[in-house]
Design a binder for these strands. Structure first.
Lengths: 256, 256
DNA sequence: GTTCCATCTCTCATAATGTGAGAAGATAGC
DNA sequence: GCTATCTTCTCACATTATGAGAGATGGAAC
C-alpha cells in the first residue's frame, strides 16, 4: 500500500464520473460517458445510480443527468463565503494601509467566528490567525455576526453559554449580551473595547450578500497605545465604504 | 444485494464526510469528525487523506480542513446558465415540435451570445450551431439579453461598436439600437425580422433567475417562406409559457 | 524536565464490496 | 417487422475497504 493510487479508488473513480457528467452538462447518455472514460457500462451505471440516489445528480429524461440538489447545496455553502473572502482580500489590504491597523474578515460557522483574512500593520501582534476559530460573543466581528443571525439561532446561541470572561470588560451576562446584540443590529456596527483582550479596540461592520443576508464581517483592530487613535466615526465610515465595495464587487459575479 | 443501501457504500460515506467537513468550516479535528459521524478514526483518516489527495479538501494546519480547489472548481462549473440550459432542453424540444420551427436558447458572455440549445424542425437550415458565439446586436435573443443588461454595461456595449450590417434591415446606428433595446425591455420580448439573415424571422423572450435577473433568452426562428406563419401573438404566448416553465423547473433545485 | 491526554499513523487479517463480462430486457429508429 | 443502442440484472472473482490495536507524535499542564 504505497502506490500512487492506493486509497478509496472507487470513490475517486466515481468523483471523476460526477465531474464528467457535470462538465458535459447532461448532453450525453450514460453509455456515452462510460465510453469516454473507458469504463465498463455496468460500472458507469452503478456509479450514476449511486450519484442519483445521493441526489448529487438528477435524471433529466433520456439518460441525461444534471447536478442534483445536494451538490447544489454543497456548492452554495462553499462559494459564498469563500468568494466574499476572495474579492475582499485586495479591498481590505488597501483599507489596512490607509488606517494603519490590522483588518480582518470573518464568517460564522457553528456559532464560532472563522478568521479568513488578516492583513495590515501590526498583524503579527494580534493573536488571531487565518483559519482560526474563536468564540463569537467577545469580539467585534463575532457580535456583528451574531446580531444578524435569525432570531431562532441567536436565541439558541444566547441560551447556550457559558460565556467565559476574557477580560474585565467581557460581556458574560446573557441579558446584557442580548441587549448588546440588539444595539449592534440597530446601529449597524459593533465595537469591542477591550472585551477580548485588554487595550485592544475593534470596530466591525457586516457584509451582506445580494439577498441582504449577513454572510461575513470585517473589522479594524487597534492596540490602544494611549496616543493617537483614529476617530471612531472616521473609522466607521471607512469600514462601511470597504464593506460596500466588497458587496458591489462580489455581486458582479452573481448577476449578468 | 437488494437492500436499501447496496451500492458504493464507501463512496457515500466519504461524501458524508466531505459534507461534514465543509459544513463544519474546518472547525474540528479529524478525530472529532470521526466521533460525530460514528466512524472509526482510521477510516476517517483514510477518507480525509483521500479527499486531500484529490484536492477536494485542503489541510489548514492542526488537523483542520477546508474545501480544496477541485471542489471549488466543480462548484463554479455548476453555473446558473448551464443549469438553465439543462432544464430548458426538454421544454424547448416540446415547444419546437408544437410551433414546427427552430427553437434556441442563448446566454450572454463577453457581449456575445452563446448558443446553448438548438432544436426542432429546420434546425439544420439555420446557420447557428450549439456552442457558437455571435454578435448580440443583430439577433432576437441578443437584443433581449442586451436590453436587460445593467445600464452601465449596456451603455458600454452601445458605445463599443462597430455594428456591421448583415442585411439591409440590420440596425447599425447606436441611437436606433438604443431605442430598440428600450422598446424590447418595455414590451418584454424582441423581434428580429430579417436583421440577421434575409427572410429569417425570430421572436425572443427572456428567462429570469429567482432574483429576477435575466440570465438567458429563448427564441423561435422561422424562415419566411411566404406562406403560413404562426400569428405573432400566439407565438409570443407560447414562448412566454415555455419561459415560465423553465423558470419554475430551474428554481426547484435552487431554493431552500 | 516528566506525565498525561488527544490526535495521528501504520500494519494486517478478514470479509465485505465493488468489479466487469455477458445475458436478457427496453427503447428508438428505420 | 428488424436492427442498433442503451439499460438492467446476475454472478463468480479478487480487489479493496475495513477496523482494531499498537506505535508515534505533539501539546498542555505541572
Amino acid at each position: 500500500m504505497r502506490d500512487g493510487t492506493p486509497q478509496l479508488s472507487s470513490f475517486k473513480r466515481t468523483l471523476t464520473m460526477l465531474e464528467a457528467v457535470v462538465d458535459d452538462g447532461g448532453a450525453s447518455s450514460v453509455a456515452e460517458m462510460a465510453r469516454r472514460l473507458g469504463l465498463p457500462v455496468a460500472t458507469a451505471h452503478r456509479q450514476i445510480a449511486t450519484l442519483v440516489a445521493e441526489d448529487y445528480l438528477r435524471p433529466l429524461g433520456k439518460g441525461r443527468h444534471v447536478a442534483g440538489s445536494r451538490l447544489m447545496k454543497l456548492a452554495q455553502r462553499l462559494d459564498e463565503k469563500q468568494l466574499i473572502a476572495n474579492v475582499a482580500a485586495p479591498i481590505l489590504h488597501r483599507l489596512a494601509t490607509r488606517v494603519r491597523s490590522t483588518v480582518q474578515l470573518g464568517t460564522l460557522e457553528n456559532e464560532m467566528v472563522t478568521y479568513r483574512i488578516k492583513t495590515g500593520q501590526g498583524a503579527s501582534a494580534l493573536f488571531t490567525k487565518v483559519g482560526m476559530q474563536l468564540e463569537a460573543y467577545c469580539s467585534g466581528m463575532g457580535k456583528v455576526l451574531l446580531a444578524y443571525l435569525p432570531d431562532k439561532d441567536r436565541d439558541n446561541y444566547l441560551a447556550g453559554g457559558p460565556f467565559v470572561p476574557l477580560t474585565a470588560k467581557t460581556i458574560t451576562e446573557p441579558a446584557a449580551l442580548t441587549a448588546e446584540l440588539i444595539k449592534v443590529q440597530e446601529q449597524g456596527f459593533a465595537v469591542d473595547d477591550g472585551e477580548i483582550a485588554d487595550g485592544l479596540f475593534c470596530m466591525a461592520v457586516p457584509i451582506r450578500n445580494p439577498a441582504q443576508q449577513v454572510v461575513a464581517a470585517i473589522s479594524v483592530s487597534q492596540a490602544d497605545t494611549g496616543n493617537k487613535r483614529m476617530a471612531d466615526d472616521v473609522l466607521l465610515a471607512m469600514l462601511r465604504q470597504a464593506a460596500s465595495a466588497i458587496e458591489a464587487e462580489a455581486n458582479v459575479g452573481t448577476d449578468r
